[in-house]
Amino acid sequence: MGHDNSHDDVSSHVKTYLKIGVTLIVFTVITVAISFIDFGGNNNMIVGMAVATFKASLVCLIFMHLNHERPLIYKVLVFTVVLAIVLFTLFISAHGDPLKDEGFEAPAVPVKTATAHH
């Protein structure tokens, strides 16, 4: 067999699958409920994404069997995860862009006045 799940193994996993399903539903309810509570600033986004990442991890580890896979799969996924993190980091860093700072769009006028005084 290519996979190391013997039939007995699988039957012992069935209960786990159901438990994970219930956990995912509970955390979906939590996600919806806490989105109606204001944590201030970006905290709602951080909390929401943390819960989503936790849920996604459960799906990956249990449903997609990444808790017991062959080494080659992990080698492929290391690249995926690293590249995805780089991608998101690049885009989230736009948060620090001065584009929305006050006066960013119209700096010309005060600069001109300053030079006129000198």
Binding site: T28, T31, G48, M49, A52, K55, V59
Partner: peptide, 16 residues
Amino acid sequence: HFVDLVWIFLFPLLYL
């Protein structure tokens, strides 16, 4: 499962 996983992120990002 991957399709489910994408929705796990889409739902909060677009709806909540």
